[in-house]
Measured scan of single mutants.
Amino acid sequence: MDVFMKGLSKAKEGVVAAAEKTKQGVAEAAGKTKEGVLYVGSKTKEGVVHGVATVAEKTKEQVTNVGGAVVTGVTAVAQKTVEGAGSIAAATGFVKKDQLGKNEEGAPQEGILEDMPVDPDNEAYEMPSEEGYQDYEPEA
C-alpha cells in the first residue's frame, strides 16, 4: 500500500510541476504579447503594419512553449490582441483601416495563427491545408 501511495504522490508532483510550467509559459506569452502591443503603439504610420505582424510573430513563438489545451486559448487571445492593436492603430490615425491585415508588401496577414497546427491532446499534428499553395516548377 505504501508503494501505491508513494507512486500516487510522485504522479501528483509531476502534474503540479507540469501545471506550473504551463502557467509560466502562458505568463511569458502574455508578456511578449504586451511587449508587441507597446511596440505597435510606438510606431509611426509606416511601421504600424509591420508592428502588428511582430506582435503576432512574438506571440506565436511563445505559444510553442505552452502545451496542451492552453495553446488553443493563448492563440485565440493573441489573435484578438493583434486585431485590437490594429483597431487602436486605425482609431489613433497611425494607419488607414484599409491597410490593416496586410503586410508591407500588401499581402493579407489573416491566418497567421489560424494555420498553425495545434492539437490540445498532444496526440497528432496535421499540416495546414494546401489550398493556398501553388506547385513550383523550376525553369529549365
Rank of each mutant, 00 (worst) to 15 (best):
V3C: 02
F4V: 01
M5R: 10
L8T: 00
S9Q: 12
S9T: 02
K10Y: 05
K10F: 05
A11N: 00
K12V: 12
E13F: 06
E13R: 09
E13G: 05
G14P: 01
G14W: 05
V15W: 07
V15C: 06
V16A: 04
E20F: 14
E20R: 02
E20L: 13
K21L: 13
K23C: 14
K23E: 00
Q24R: 13
G25L: 13
V26E: 00
V26S: 00
A27M: 15
E28A: 06
A29T: 06
A29G: 02
A30F: 15
G31A: 08
K32I: 10
K32R: 10
K32S: 02
V37L: 14
V37R: 00
V37G: 01
V37T: 01
L38K: 09
L38F: 13
L38I: 04
G41M: 14
G41E: 01
T44R: 01
T44L: 09
K45M: 15
E46L: 03
G47Q: 14
V49D: 01
H50P: 01
G51A: 12
G51C: 15
V52N: 01
A53G: 06
T54H: 13
T54D: 01
T54W: 13
V55D: 00
A56E: 01
A56R: 09
E57L: 09
E57H: 04
E57T: 07
K58L: 10
K58M: 14
K58H: 09
K60C: 06
E61I: 06
E61R: 06
V63M: 15
N65D: 05
V66F: 14
G67M: 12
G67W: 09
G68S: 03
A69C: 06
A69H: 10
V70C: 04
V71P: 01
T72Q: 12
V74T: 02
V74A: 08
T75N: 06
A76K: 12
A78I: 13
A78T: 08
Q79D: 03
K80F: 14
T81V: 15
V82Q: 05
V82K: 07
A85Q: 02
A85M: 13
S87G: 14
I88C: 04
A89L: 14
A89S: 05
A90E: 05
A90W: 14
A90H: 10
A91W: 12
T92L: 12
T92Q: 03
T92G: 09
T92A: 09
G93R: 03
G93V: 04
F94H: 05
V95W: 14
K97W: 15
D98W: 13
D98M: 05
L100G: 07
L100Q: 08
L100A: 13
L100P: 12
K102C: 08
N103K: 07
N103F: 10
N103W: 13
N103P: 11
E104S: 09
E104D: 14
E105G: 09
E105T: 13
E105Y: 12
E105Q: 11
A107F: 04
Q109L: 05
E110P: 11
I112A: 04
E114T: 03
D115H: 11
D115R: 05
V118Q: 02
D119A: 12
P120Q: 11
D121W: 05
D121T: 09
N122W: 06
N122Y: 09
E123F: 12
A124G: 09
E126P: 11
M127K: 13
M127I: 12
P128I: 12
P128G: 06
S129W: 04
S129G: 08
E130F: 07
E130S: 04
E131Q: 09
E131L: 05
G132W: 13
Y133K: 03
Q134D: 06
D135A: 05
Y136M: 10
Y136Q: 09
E137V: 05
E137K: 03
A140M: 06
